[in-house]
Simulated assay, not measured.
Amino acid sequence: MARLPQPRSDLARPRKLEPDDVVALVSPASWSDESWVAESVATIESWGFRARVGRHATNRLGYLAGGDRERAADLDAAIQDPEVRAILCLRGGCGSLRLLGDVDTDALRSDPKPLIGFSDITALHQVWHRAGVPSVHGAVAGTRMDTVRQLLVGERGEPVWCDRSQFGADLTTTGTASGPLFGGNLDMLARTVGVVDNDLEGHVLLLETHREVGLGMVDRAVTQLLLSGALAGVSGVAVGALEGFEDYQDRDWTVLDVLHERLGSLGVPILAGLPLGHLESPISVPLGVECVLDADAGTLTVAPLTA
């Protein structure tokens, strides 16, 4: 087992969940259909927890799960409720960025509880990170959903192994890196430059993306992070799913060419092909806690989420 570095001095780890603890289900971004909400509730309850669906979680306003005020109210209600021990985002989509100024970070810091989600939820993960509260990059979906339960009850998961057959694994270099793990969706990280001031010096950066448009958007996103100084001092890069880019080329270049050229300028170890992000059955990992990236062994070892 990899030797993990010392935790951040300002880290406020949540406590592990016990049977009958409450997990709040909220929709800070896009809406989910009723069957998905019911399935998520059933999963949380099958783990021995109580599921509490946010008052506005099933609202709809275009592609959003209701208005900004209602979505923010559900999120803050979950943060402020002492019974709630974890907050599950029902889905990503679009809308989380609108709520960044509305999160009750004082309440979150005084009663730390993890946020669970990925993709558009990356915007909110950055608020948790700035508050010094670990969160979970992942989802209660697919055959690996139990990794969420394991994190919540304080289990130390197995290392996440690089899948050499996964598209993008060829980006892997050599060497080891350590530090707190933080990141998420590439586009969302870039769009929050100048909105959220993330200090990633000494961190292992987690990146995943899916294809909405062409390679130029990937290039712009990484370049914005580089030019802004957001990636200055990162110790390593962990690359998850590059969904939708498998058979896509633009003038003989693939997304691997773009990422190799852009991320290579950091001069740090890169471990790619990790089963994280936009996959049918993603593994869930804590953000904001210590990790060791071993590109030679093909493993990402992350410390427990809870105290």
Rank of each mutant, 00 (worst) to 15 (best):
T122N: 08
T122P: 13
A123Q: 09
H125P: 15
Q126Y: 06
Q126N: 08
Q126R: 13
V127Q: 03
V127L: 11
W128V: 04
W128D: 07
H129I: 04
R130A: 12
R130L: 12
R130D: 03
A131M: 05
P134F: 03
P134N: 09
P134S: 10
S135N: 13
V136Q: 03
V136G: 01
V136L: 09
G138V: 12
A139T: 07
V140W: 07
V140L: 10
A141L: 14
A141H: 13
T143D: 12
D146V: 14
D146F: 09
T147C: 09
V148E: 01
R149D: 03
L152A: 11
V153D: 05
V153I: 15
V153M: 05
G154S: 07
G157H: 03
G157F: 00
E158M: 04
P159C: 01
P159N: 00
P159G: 00
P159L: 00
W161T: 07
C162G: 06
C162P: 01
D163W: 05
R164I: 02
Q166V: 01
A169I: 02
L171G: 06
T172M: 08
T172I: 03
T173Y: 03
T173V: 04
T174I: 02
G175M: 02
G175C: 06
G175A: 10
A177E: 07
P180R: 14
P180T: 11
G183A: 15
N185Y: 10
D187T: 09
M188Y: 07
M188T: 11
L189M: 15
L189W: 03
A190V: 03
T192N: 09
V195F: 13
V195K: 14
D197P: 01
D197A: 14
D197E: 14
N198G: 10
G202N: 09
H203P: 01
H203E: 08
V204C: 07
V204Y: 06
L206S: 04
L206W: 06
L206V: 02
L207W: 01
L207Q: 02
E208L: 11
T209N: 07
T209I: 06
T209F: 00
E212W: 11
G214Q: 08
G214W: 13
G216E: 10
M217A: 15
V218A: 00
D219I: 03
R220Q: 15
V222I: 15
V222S: 00
Q224W: 03
L225Q: 01
L225I: 05
L226R: 12
L226G: 04
L226M: 14
L226N: 03
G229E: 06
G229C: 12
A230K: 13
A230T: 14
A230G: 05
L231Y: 04
G233V: 04
S235G: 06
S235P: 02
S235W: 06
V237Q: 01
V239S: 00
G240L: 00
A241G: 05
A241D: 00
L242T: 11
E243I: 02
E243G: 06
G244S: 14
F245E: 08
E246N: 12
D247A: 11
D250I: 06
R251M: 11
R251H: 12
D252R: 12
W253C: 06
W253A: 15
W253K: 14
T254M: 06
V255L: 02
V255G: 00
L256V: 15
L256R: 13
L256N: 09
D257L: 10
V258D: 05
L259M: 15
